[in-house]
Design a binder for these strands. Structure first.
Lengths: 239, 239
DNA sequence: ATCCGTATGTACGGTTTCGTACAAATGATG
DNA sequence: CATCATTTGTACGAAACCGTACATACGGAT
């Protein structure tokens, strides 16, 4: 995976025009992203944006009590650091590497220069931002109305869509932090999925055995986000 | 209120440059917005954007089951229909008038033309969009971690910030739809607030008696959104 | 092979919210 | 004033989730 790295493994970079690639690609830096790395945190000025290829990044909010909740997830279909071109420069959320891997990094200034040329990149980034908003909105709805079992299915599928294999390195404790529930709640939900043969997990490794089964059990939230993302991000399959 | 209407009652319109106003204001239409009016719904092409002055609009998601949840609220500080300039043209949410009033309407094409001139309006709209994302993210977190009591406080304050008076026309049933909880849950929570002298309500009219009291009881979510909105929308107080 | 830190499993009472049912109060209408 | 639809109040068991405590299981290190 790390052997054959190519900016085009990120779907946004892959969709740029020839001229934009000529301008942008030379300035991209390949960055290794270890699990748990913090790309940015509230009130910290963002200096770079990240285009993940194999890594997955969680955007999460942490409350005064220490409780947390994931509000969106970004993988090879997206970009981390949208507040740079949106104009805020910082956000009230954290960006944390949820699954180790690689990303291409670009300086914030370079990105802004490209963005305000108003060519393909701008159109892509704005549409991607709308897709991200759909994900956040659906997360809010899911938090309100669905069970931990359903949310775990959703979370697994969202991760799976951004990974090359059907195996993810993730403890139940970490999943609990993402979903904003107790670790025991995840143990129980995961137990149900394992009992029914949909997944298998051993000490921080989860293997998805029956993706179709997960899709049957997941709440509508997953489908809504996927459908809208596909629509917004155009003909090319985004995930 | 309807006697002295002026586009500048909307904060985004008020913040435009002199030249932009000259171009845009002649094309604004003052629109009366009755309670419950639907401005757009999923998969319906959006033809106009709305700049509320006295009206308040809820962005809400409705699930297959019919259950709903508000994901953000837009008043005189914002604009309804951002998917127009974001590029999606439609959204997966509804925009419903939560509090009757007025808004200025602009054709989608006119807005897009202005947006892509990349002047003040673009900067404003992008930053506003980021503020909206903060609101959505915080709604997700609040749905996960806070009680109905706290969420009702948040909702009341968000509404209050967008209204001219301390009285809102709203049944508990409708609030329940917004918060995505049972009507009885709102009855109970509102009962607590009334018992403690923070509000008074009679059949669809809620009067806020003690705003400070609400602010003391509300969860951090309200403050986070307000602070971030103020930061993003610049020196001028946005609410 | 044993030890030890980490990860997962299980259990129990408490709280919040849900679903449902029905009663009471309000305000508009005739 | 009487009627009626709407809004609000109350009650009760069920379900989901929480907080806590503790047991078990795995896997790397000595």
């Amino acid at each position: 995976m790390s052997l054959e790295n190519d900016p085009c493994h990120n779907h946004l970079l892959a969709a740029l025009s020839e001229e934009e690639r000529k301008r942008v690609f030379p300035d991209l830096e390949l960055i290794e992203m270890p699990l748990g790395d913090t790309l940015y945190s509230p009130d910290h000025l963002i200096k770079h944006v990240y285009f993940p290829t194999t890594a997955i990044v969680s955007l999460l909010h942490v409350m005064e009590s220490g409780a947390s909740a994931e509000i969106a997830v970004v993988g090879k279909e997206g970009i981390v650091g949208i507040s740079l071109f949106m104009g805020g420069e910082t956000t009230s959320s954290w960006a944390v590497v949820q699954s180790a891997g690689y990303a291409y990094r670009l300086s914030g200034q370079r990105l802004k220069n490209e963005f305000f040329r108003a060519e393909t990149l701008q159109r892509l980034l704005l549409r991607y931002t709308q897709a991200l908003m759909t994900q956040m909105a659906q997360t809010a709805v899911c938090n309100r109305h669905h069970t931990v079992d359903q949310q775990l299915c959703r979370w697994l599928l969202l991760s799976l869509d951004r990974l090359p294999s059907n195996e993810l390195t993730m403890t139940q404790e970490l999943i609990a932090n993402m979903l904003g529930v107790r670790r025991e709640g995840v143990t129980e939900a995961a137990g149900h999925l394992q009992r029914d043969g949909l997944i298998r997990y051993v000490r921080g490794k989860i293997t998805v055995l029956d993706r179709k089964g997960l899709e049957q059990r997941v709440c509508e939230c997953y489908r809504v986000v996927k459908k809208e993302t596909d629509r917004l991000m155009g003909g090319h399959p985004t995930l």
